[in-house]
Lab assay of single mutants.
Amino acid sequence: NRLGIIYEIQGMKAVVLTSEGEFLIIRRRKDMKVGQQVSFENEDIYNV
Rank of each mutant, 00 (worst) to 15 (best):
N1E: 14
N1D: 11
R2V: 03
R2C: 11
R2H: 06
R2T: 06
R2A: 03
R2G: 07
R2Y: 13
L3F: 11
L3D: 12
L3S: 12
L3C: 06
L3P: 03
L3T: 11
L3N: 12
G4H: 02
G4N: 02
G4S: 02
I5L: 11
I5T: 07
I5C: 08
I5Q: 05
I5D: 02
I5N: 04
I5M: 07
I6Y: 01
I6S: 00
I6A: 01
I6D: 00
I6C: 06
I6W: 00
I6R: 00
I6E: 00
Y7D: 03
Y7F: 08
Y7E: 10
Y7V: 13
E8A: 12
E8N: 08
E8P: 00
I9Y: 03
I9G: 00
I9F: 14
I9H: 01
I9W: 03
Q10K: 10
Q10D: 13
Q10E: 12
G11R: 08
G11F: 11
G11T: 04
G11P: 10
G11A: 11
G11C: 15
M12F: 13
M12W: 12
M12C: 15
M12N: 15
M12I: 08
K13F: 13
K13Q: 09
K13A: 05
K13E: 09
K13T: 10
K13C: 15
K13V: 04
A14L: 04
A14R: 00
A14Q: 01
A14W: 05
V15E: 03
V15N: 05
V15M: 13
V15K: 14
V15I: 13
V15R: 12
V16I: 11
V16P: 00
L17M: 13
L17P: 00
L17T: 09
L17C: 05
T18P: 01
T18W: 04
T18G: 03
T18Q: 02
T18V: 06
S19G: 05
S19K: 10
S19W: 06
E20N: 08
E20Y: 06
E20Q: 07
E20H: 07
E20V: 05
E20T: 11
E20F: 07
G21I: 01
G21Y: 05
G21V: 01
G21L: 04
G21F: 04
G21T: 02
E22Q: 10
E22R: 05
E22W: 07
E22M: 09
E22T: 09
F23S: 06
F23I: 14
F23N: 03
F23K: 10
F23T: 11
F23M: 14
L24S: 03
L24A: 07
L24R: 03
I25P: 05
I25C: 13
I25S: 11
I25E: 07
I25K: 05
I25Y: 06
I25T: 09
I25A: 10
I26H: 00
I26G: 00
I26D: 00
R27C: 15
R27F: 14
R27A: 12
R28G: 15
R28H: 15
R28Q: 14
R28S: 15
R28E: 04
R29D: 12
R29I: 09
K30R: 14
K30P: 15
K30G: 15
K30M: 15
K30W: 10
D31A: 08
D31K: 12
D31L: 07
D31Q: 13
D31M: 08
M32P: 01
M32C: 04
M32A: 09
M32T: 06
K33P: 01
K33I: 04
K33A: 06
K33G: 04
V34R: 04
V34F: 03
V34G: 02
V34T: 05
V34H: 04
V34D: 02
V34S: 02
V34K: 13
G35E: 02
G35N: 04
G35S: 03
Q36A: 10
Q36T: 06
Q36L: 08
Q37R: 10
Q37K: 10
Q37A: 11
Q37W: 11
Q37S: 13
Q37T: 14
V38P: 00
V38T: 06
V38M: 04
V38Y: 06
V38R: 02
V38D: 00
V38C: 08
V38S: 04
S39D: 10
S39A: 10
S39F: 09
S39V: 11
F40E: 02
F40P: 03
F40Y: 06
F40R: 01
F40V: 03
F40D: 01
F40W: 12
F40C: 02
E41A: 12
E41Y: 06
E41M: 12
E41F: 07
E41W: 04
E41V: 06
E41G: 09
N42Q: 08
N42F: 12
N42S: 08
N42A: 06
N42R: 06
E43C: 09
E43M: 02
E43N: 05
D44K: 02
D44I: 03
D44W: 02
D44G: 01
D44R: 01
D44T: 02
Y46E: 07
Y46K: 11
Y46C: 15
N47Y: 05
N47Q: 12
N47L: 07
V48L: 04
V48P: 15
V48Y: 03
V48I: 09
